[in-house]
């Protein structure tokens, strides 16, 4: 559906070159919800803007449905852009227009009659759940309602692709959740391909099918969301994954010399990570029975991503040394990541 080939974009700022996109190639399938995650300045904003050519890459190609759009200009490019909706962190609604007028804006001169325009806009507002706000001005809406209005507007010209530029970053967690739910339902109902960029791992976790991790203008890691979470390869990916779990909290405790982690002789701190989708058994009780060691859970973070549990535990293991070693050995053999801290 969307193919980026060797996209490069360099900015010169105060005499310094800055690679916002550095030879990025990427393929996004039809009907996918694809996440691009990275810290600010990683180049994800630039990359997503290359898809509708709000930013023109210095080199490389953008193919939408097999068609090279980098060669398009003027009216042809504008026609192509209508097939790609976009929503933004700060909603970018026209303050001087009502919600209804905002939704009509992109299709105002598309040849539809006034009545048809209104009908279509109302249907879209119905779809995003704010039909009752049609006559309101953006300043009268909450953040979530504004983003819903912006989504309705982005869908007005029946796009096949929706680009989301940090679309939930200005929203509170509950509202974020509801907007993500809406996006997921639009993806299912309309077969909409969604590309979203974010610095919130939770967003990726809750709706993306695949994700790319960006750093310094490059995609450093790419894969299905479960794989990225279960087995992050790059330091930057790991730090993102850590933001969604509390397992790294143990390091802080050790640093603070908290009484929780003052070990008695024979005790050891272990960190387990579930690496495989099958790791769904009664781990703790089974190893404590088999190796006759006691496991005291200090931290735990387990969630379900793509129908599989993911996460891990930090435990203090108490028992004789050989038994603990045997337990660690066993866990590794069933593909649970174990770190002795």
């Amino acid at each position: 559906m969307i193919r980026l080939e060797h996209i490069t974009k360099t900015y010169v700022n105060a005499g310094k070159k800055f690679n916002a996109a550095d030879d990025v190639s990427l393929e996004i399938e039809k009907g996918e919800i694809f996440g691009i995650i990275g810290f600010s300045g990683a180049g994800k904003s630039t990359l997503v803007r290359c898809i509708n050519l709000l930013e023109r890459p210095d080199s490389g190609k953008v193919l939408i449905g097999g068609r090279d759009i980098t060669s398009l200009h003027g009216a042809e490019l504008r026609r192509q852009r209508k097939k790609i909706g976009m929503i933004f962190q700060h909603f970018n609604l026209f303050a001087s227009r009502t919600v209804l007028q905002n939704v009509i804006f992109p299709i105002r001169y598309s040849g539809l009659s006034r009545q048809q325009l209104k009908e279509k806009a109302m249907n879209l507002l119905e779809l995003v759940g704010i039909a009752d706000k049609a006559g309101a001005y953006p300043s009268e809406l909450s953040g979530g309602q504004k983003q819903r209005a912006a989504i309705a507007r982005a869908l007005a010209s029946d796009p096949e692709i929706l680009l989301c530029d940090e679309a939930t970053s200005a929203l509170d967690p509950q509202t974020t959740e509801s907007i993500l739910k809406l996006l997921r339902s639009l993806n299912a109902k309309l077969g909409l391909t969604i590309v979203l960029i974010t610095h919130q791992m939770n967003v990726v976790k809750s709706i993306c099918t695949r994700t790319a991790v960006m750093e310094n203008g490059k995609i450093v890691e790419l894969g299905d969301v479960f794989g990225i979470f279960a087995n992050p390869q790059q330091p930057v990916t790991r730090s993102f994954v850590d933001t969604t779990s509390c397992l790294s909290g143990i390091n802080d405790l050790i640093e603070e010399e908290s009484p929780v982690v003052q070990l008695n002789p024979g005790q050891r701190i272990l960190r387990f990570r579930y690496l495989e989708k099958s790791a769904c058994e009664a781990l703790v009780s089974s190893i404590s029975r088999r190796f006759s060691i006691d496991l005291n859970i200090v931290f735990g973070s387990i969630e379900i991503i793509g129908d599989h549990p993911i996460g891990g535990l930090v435990v203090i293991a108490d028992g004789n040394e050989a038994d603990i070693d045997a337990a660690v050995e066993y866990l590794r053999s069933i593909n649970v990541g174990v770190e002795v801290i």
């Binding site: 509708n52 709000l54 852009r81 209508k82 933004f88 970018n92 804006f105 992109p106 982005a154 010209s157």
Partner: peptide
């Protein structure tokens, strides 16, 4: 941002 939004709509 409004200009950008309008551009993204093919205005």
């Amino acid at each position: 941002g409004l200009i950008e939004a309008a551009q993204s709509m093919g205005c």
